[in-house]
């Protein structure tokens, strides 16, 4: 049995279903009342498991899933050195989103990371605290800002509605996913020139361990061939 993890809801779920139907794979309910299990029509060797897109990376790493479709942003965030245990089988042409820094629009003097660093330093001097950055993507943010020599910042964990964190007084700056920039604009936020942390999209990921052990498996080969097929 091949355990295949897919996002259980949202736009990503619909796009994944499209992707399958283009390749002649039809998702059907597993026949039980459980809505989080499914299978491909006429294919008994693949168990489809529906779960939160953000849980897919760790489940592949732990070995509970053999294959999964999820956003690259989530793989980068959830698993340090993910290339050691996970194979990126195919990059998909949907789920596009950039992970960006958002600052208040009226911060007209802040247009680059070096500005952000200087403002963080002023914060320290004037308000005796670090610049607070709210994000769901703590690991990517921390690494990116340190790599780019930004100092005096503190990351505030935010599980959702991050774009509201500044107005709510929780943070001074945010790092969040933005596909069109519309949400940022609505919340009177702007991006900065060198403030794109990651250009993300959906990909098919395979557990390296599983792949090594089952390379010769005919069923797996047939499935992977079908998935990488360009339509």
């Amino acid at each position: 049995m091949i355990r295949f993890g897919l996002p259980s809801k949202g736009r990503l779920k619909k796009q994944v279903e499209n992707f399958f139907s283009e390749r002649g794979l039809e998702l059907v309910n597993a026949g039980m009342i459980r809505e989080y299990l499914a299978e491909f029509k006429g294919e008994k060797k693949v168990q489809i498991i529906l779960l939160a897109a953000s849980d897919i990376p760790l489940e592949i790493k732990k070995g509970n899933l053999d294959i999964g479709i999820t956003g690259r942003d989530l793989i980068f965030e959830k698993i340090l050195d993910w290339r050691k245990c996970i194979l990126e089988l195919k990059q998909l042409d949907f789920g596009e989103a950039d992970l960006v820094i958002g600052v208040p629009q009226f911060w007209i003097d802040v247009n680059h990371l070096d500005d952000l660093d200087e403002v963080a330093f002023f914060f320290r001097k004037k308000y005796s605290r670090c610049l607070r950055i709210a994000t769901k993507y703590q690991n990517i943010t921390r690494e990116f800002l340190i790599d780019n020599q930004v100092t005096n910042f503190e990351i505030i964990e935010s599980q959702g509605a991050t774009e509201g964190a500044i107005v709510n007084g929780i943070a001074d700056v945010i790092v969040d996913i933005s596909s069109t920039g519309e949400t940022l604009k609505q919340n009177k936020l702007k991006t900065i020139e060198d403030g794109t942390l990651l250009k993300s999209f959906a990909s098919i990921f395979v557990s390296k361990n599983y792949y090594k052990k089952n390379k010769g498996d005919v069923e797996l080969k047939r499935l992977l061939d079908q998935l990488v097929l360009d339509i």
């Binding site: 208040p104 629009q105 009226f106 911060w107 007209i108 403002v119 914060f123 009177k188």
Partner: peptide, 19 residues
């Protein structure tokens, strides 16, 4: 900066002007 009316968060208009 003169034309902006909506300010929010900890960093003030004066902070920006000062910088």
């Amino acid at each position: 900066l003169l034309g902006i009316e909506s300010f929010y968060g900890v960093r003030t208009k004066t902070d920006i002007k000062e910088r």
